[in-house]
Simulated assay, not measured.
Amino acid sequence: MSRSGVAVADESLSAFNDLKLGKKHKFILFGLNDNKTEIVVKETSNDDSYDTFLEKLPENDCLYAVYDFEYEISGNEGKRSKIIFFTWSPDTAPVRSKMVYASSKDALRRSLNGVAADIQGTDFSEVAYETVLDRVRSGTH
């Protein structure tokens, strides 16, 4: 339970484990239910395109997302994969929505074990592929 009184739905944890352990999803979008009492799965996807993920981020509303981010290592080391947690809170979202999402984030984030980095996005430049790639490669959270 978060400071805002919002709980994490069991389905949210199941979907995350499917992504992390089963590689069943490429990304998961989470949001608050209609009563603003629970964090639920809004959508899952197997689409490998990062652009598809970005297209799912609403222009005027908040959400959380988990993305299985793959990237190349320089040299011949091949691909790596890191799970990234996104808090999407665009400047154009309603203030109330931004407040509820900000105060509810910890409840979800603490229950997701195995996340390599956290990205806070208020506009698309902060969640652009190159921005996330730089963050993952540098190892900063």
Rank of each mutant, 00 (worst) to 15 (best):
S2Y: 07
S4D: 04
A9Q: 09
E11W: 01
L13P: 13
L13S: 07
L13Q: 08
A15W: 11
D18W: 03
L19F: 07
K20T: 07
K24W: 03
H25L: 08
H25G: 07
K26C: 10
F27L: 09
F27K: 00
L29T: 08
N33D: 15
N35F: 13
K36S: 14
E38F: 02
I39V: 15
V40H: 02
V41E: 09
E43V: 06
T44Q: 10
T44M: 09
D48H: 11
Y50P: 04
D51H: 07
D51L: 07
T52G: 00
T52H: 14
L54D: 00
E55P: 03
K56Q: 13
L57F: 04
N60W: 00
C62P: 01
Y67N: 11
E70D: 12
E72V: 09
G75T: 06
N76I: 03
N76W: 10
K79N: 13
K79I: 11
K79S: 13
S81Y: 01
S81M: 12
S81I: 08
K82H: 12
I83H: 02
I83G: 04
I84T: 09
F86E: 08
S89L: 04
P90A: 05
P90L: 03
P90T: 06
D91A: 11
D91V: 05
A93R: 03
P94T: 01
P94K: 08
Y101R: 08
Y101L: 04
A102W: 01
S104R: 03
L108E: 07
L112S: 09
V115W: 07
A116Y: 15
A116W: 14
G121E: 01
G121M: 06
T122R: 15
S125M: 05
S125G: 00
E126D: 06
A128R: 11
A128H: 10
Y129I: 06
L133S: 04
L133M: 03
R135V: 05
R135M: 10
R135I: 12
V136T: 06
V136I: 14
R137F: 02
R137M: 11
R137G: 01
S138W: 02
T140Q: 14
